[in-house]
Simulated assay, not measured.
Amino acid sequence: MRKFLVISIPICTIVIFILIMQSGIFLKYSSVGDDNIPKMIEKIMENISEEHWEEANKNTADLKEAWSKIVFRIQFSTERNEINDFSVSIARLEGAILARDKSSAFMELKEALQHWMYLGK
């Protein structure tokens, strides 16, 4: 029995760690729906194209809040650089919205969406 435990406990621990490290692709999506990043990005794009800057600013704050929830779930399974790149895109987006610069805002939104697609892969 002791030999079985000595072998099985490390193997089970390693398997659990591997599952955690590979779970980023699944954990970035929520079953609740209040942190659907691609949908939020589309909504911000619509706001910017219609030049509703206050609404875009509010939706960007919601995006930032949703991102903070997702980071908590994926922090162990995603590279830190990927997380930082998405966070920087959101920060730049906030600046572009404050400056009311359509082209910069669209560039940052597309870049954020690209980071989102490759997050956890």
Rank of each mutant, 00 (worst) to 15 (best):
G95K: 06
K43M: 06
I16E: 03
M45N: 10
K110P: 00
M107G: 14
I48E: 04
N36A: 08
I90E: 14
A61H: 04
K28F: 02
I97K: 01
F76G: 01
S103L: 10
W67P: 01
K110V: 12
D62K: 13
W116D: 14
A61E: 08
F26S: 09
F4M: 11
I41E: 01
C12S: 15
G33A: 03
H115G: 07
I7K: 03
Y29Q: 09
L27Y: 07
L19D: 01
D85E: 12
T78Q: 10
E42K: 03
T13W: 12
R2D: 15
K58S: 10
I9Y: 05
A112K: 04
S68C: 04
V71K: 12
K102E: 09
K102V: 15
A91S: 11
F72N: 09
K39E: 14
W53F: 04
V88E: 13
I74C: 01
E50K: 09
A61G: 04
A91V: 13
F72D: 13
F76Q: 02
S87V: 01
K102Y: 07
K43A: 11
V71L: 06
D34N: 12
L113M: 15
S103A: 13
S31D: 08
H52N: 13
Y118G: 03
I20G: 08
T13G: 15
